[in-house]
């Protein structure tokens, strides 16, 4: 055989269209993964020998747990329809009808189970929390009291009861609206005035010498009468 080259004078083989894998890189990755698994299995085994439960070590990126800011509100789902796959209703695993936890891929049927799951260490680890809460100082407490008090005061201001107070609030609102309308009207008038000035300026710049007799007479007349042209609002 004289040459390995085919009839087309190329070295391409039949299977060259397939994806080429970097075998070394994948071998390296497999080795790393196996080493990690071996280590974990060893830790599990040692924990078992010591009679303890094995927990995955923390990564160090966990955040502190915080108190719930809002309560579970099921009333917002009233009237909503959700489609479920036919086999979804068995057990907690996977997405199904009920409260679904995306981080742990579990579904719960009632609010008690749901809140217990949210408090569980399994869930806290899955969302990257330590299950510890920051200790507040007296200053924090002072600040919080002040904050809540101000919020309540603000709410109280908006919640008025007597007719006199309501009329006063209404009057203020109306005054504000009237002022807004006035400003709008002034702005429109101002714009119109500017446009007119610009037109006059253009007319003057033309000069009499450039003007062809009778050509602009109609436009001038219309501009004087406040019209800009027929048919189209475009200039």
């Amino acid at each position: 055989m004289a040459s390995k080259k085919g009839a087309y004078e190329t070295t391409a083989s039949d299977t060259d269209f397939r994806k080429k894998y970097d075998r070394e890189e994948y071998a390296q990755r497999a080795k790393e993964r196996e080493a990690k698994e071996r280590e974990e299995n060893k830790a599990r085994y040692e924990a078992k020998l010591a009679g303890k439960k094995y927990y995955k070590p923390l990564t160090g990126d966990e955040t502190l747990t915080q108190a719930r800011a809002s309560r579970l509100d099921v009333s917002q789902n009233v009237g909503k329809v959700t489609l479920m796959p036919a086999g979804a209703a068995t057990g907690k695993r996977g997405r199904g009808a009920g409260f679904y936890c995306a981080d742990c891929d579990l579904t719960f049927k009632d609010n008690l189970q749901w809140v217990e799951h949210e408090n569980s260490m399994q869930h806290l680890r899955a969302i990257g929390q330590t299950g510890e809460v920051k200790r507040a100082t007296a200053d924090d407490v002072h600040e919080r009291i002040l904050q809540i008090w101000e919020r309540l005061e603000e709410e109280k201001k908006q919640d008025v009861k007597t007719l006199g107070e309501r009329l006063e609030v209404r009057k203020e609102e109306e005054d504000r609206e009237r002022e807004e309308r006035r400003q709008k009207r002034l702005a429109v008038a101002e714009r119109k005035r500017l446009e007119k000035e610009a037109e006059l300026k253009v007319k003057q710049e033309y000069g009499e010498d450039v003007r062809v007799e009778g050509e602009h007479d109609e436009d001038d007349m219309m501009a004087m009468m406040g019209m800009k042209g027929f048919g189209s609002s475009k200039k």
Partner: peptide, 21 residues
């Protein structure tokens, strides 16, 4: 009770004030 599980989880000294109010 549900109140304990829902509202007393992860509460610190400052959150106590919010909860009381």
């Amino acid at each position: 009770c549900y109140f304990w599980k829902d509202q007393c989880f992860g509460v610190n000294e400052a959150d106590i004030v919010s909860r009381v109010v």
